[in-house]
C-alpha cells in the first residue's frame, strides 16, 4: 500500500509539474562550460571558464565550481611567549574542496534561505558547517580558524565568492545566463564540478551540472609523471643537468674571459 501511495505521489507531482511548466512556458535549466578540458602546457598561465545556459525567467541563479571534497592539513601560526609568531601546530580541515568558486545573480543571503544554503553547501557559512576542523577547543575557535582557512584559500586564488557578475538576458520565453570567470593557474590538475542552481522564493528549484577538467599535457605531463613514478632517474637527470650547466658556463667564461 505504502509503495503504491508513494508511486501515486510521484505521478501526481510529475503531472503537476508538467501542467505548471506548460502554464509558465518553462525551460529546463541547462549549463554548459566553454571548455570541459583545460590543458596545461609550458605556457599555461591560467585560463577562463565561461558558463552559459537557459533558465526559467524570473529565477535567480547560483553558479558553483568546486573540486571534489577532501582533507587538507595546514600549519597553524600562533604567538609563542606573547612575542614571537611561529608555527605552533597543525590543523586538519576535512570535507572541504581545494577550489571553491561561488557566483550568484544577487547577494546569496537575499535570495536563499539558510536551510537551503546549508543543504546545497552554498556560501562560506554553509561550507563551515559542512566541514570538519580538528583540533579546535570551542565553536568560536572553530569559526576563527575556518575564517583563516578561507583567507588562506582566497590568497591562493582558490576560493572566491561574489555576486552580480552573472548576466541574464530574456530570449523568447526563456532567460539566458552567462558568466565568465578567471581560472587561476594555481588550480591543480583534476576534475571540477560546475553546478548551477535556479532559485525562486528562497528555494533551489532546479539544478544542472557540468564538468571542467584540468589536465597536464606534453612535456609538463611527462616531467610531472617522471618526478613521481621514476624519481631516481628524475633526480639523477636533475643533478647531471646542473653539473653540465655549471661546467658549461665555466668553460664559456674561460674561453670568453681569457685572462682572469
Amino acid at each position: 500500500m505504502k509503495v503504491q501511495g508513494s508511486k501515486f505521489k510521484v505521478f501526481a507531482y510529475l503531472l503537476f509539474a508538467i501542467l505548471l511548466s506548460a502554464g509558465t512556458a518553462s525551460a529546463t535549466l541547462t549549463a554548459k562550460a566553454n571548455h570541459d578540458r583545460i590543458t596545461v602546457d609550458f605556457f599555461y598561465h591560467g585560463s577562463t571558464v565561461s558558463v552559459r545556459g537557459v533558465s526559467d525567467p524570473g529565477t535567480d541563479l547560483i553558479v558553483k565550481i568546486a573540486s571534489p571534497e577532501g582533507e587538507q592539513t595546514l600549519r597553524q601560526k600562533g604567538k609563542v611567549g606573547g612575542l614571537l609568531w611561529m608555527n605552533v601546530g597543525k590543523l586538519v580541515f576535512e570535507r572541504v574542496p581545494s577550489l571553491y568558486f561561488l557566483e550568484s545573480t544577487k547577494n546569496l543571503t537575499d535570495i536563499l534561505s539558510e536551510e537551503e544554503m546549508n543543504k546545497y553547501v552554498l556560501g562560506y557559512s554553509a561550507l563551515e558547517k559542512h566541514a570538519e576542523v580538528t583540533p579546535v577547543s570551542s565553536p568560536a575557535e572553530r569559526e576563527k580558524w575556518f575564517d583563516e582557512f578561507v583567507s588562506f584559500k582566497t590568497a591562493s586564488k582558490l576560493y572566491a565568492t561574489s555576486y552580480g557578475k552573472i548576466t541574464t538576458t530574456r530570449e523568447g520565453g526563456n532567460q539566458q545566463y552567462y558568466i565568465l570567470l578567471d581560472w587561476p593557474y594555481q588550480a591543480s590538475p583534476g576534475e571540477y564540478t560546475v553546478s548551477v542552481y535556479a532559485v525562486k522564493n528562497n528555494k533551489v528549484v532546479e539544478q544542472a551540472e557540468t564538468k571542467v577538467s584540468v589536465e597536464q599535457v606534453g612535456v609538463v605531463k611527462s616531467l610531472a609523471t617522471m618526478a613521481k613514478s621514476n624519481a631516481a632517474v628524475y633526480g639523477a637527470i636533475s643533478i647531471l643537468a646542473a653539473l653540465g650547466a655549471g661546467f658549461g658556463v665555466g668553460l664559456i667564461f674561460r674561453k670568453g674571459g681569457g685572462a682572469h
Binding site: 628524475y234 633526480g235 646542473a242 650547466a245
Partner: peptide, 27 residues
C-alpha cells in the same frame, strides 16, 4: 637534491633550469 627528488618528489626541474641559467653566470 637526490634525496629530495627520490623521497619527496619535490624537485622542479623547470624551475631549477631557470634558476641555474642565472646562478651559473652569477657565480
Amino acid at each position: 637534491t637526490f634525496l629530495q627528488a627520490y623521497t619527496n618528489h619535490s624537485v622542479d626541474f623547470v624551475l631549477a633550469v631557470l634558476l641555474l641559467i642565472g646562478s651559473t653566470f652569477g657565480a
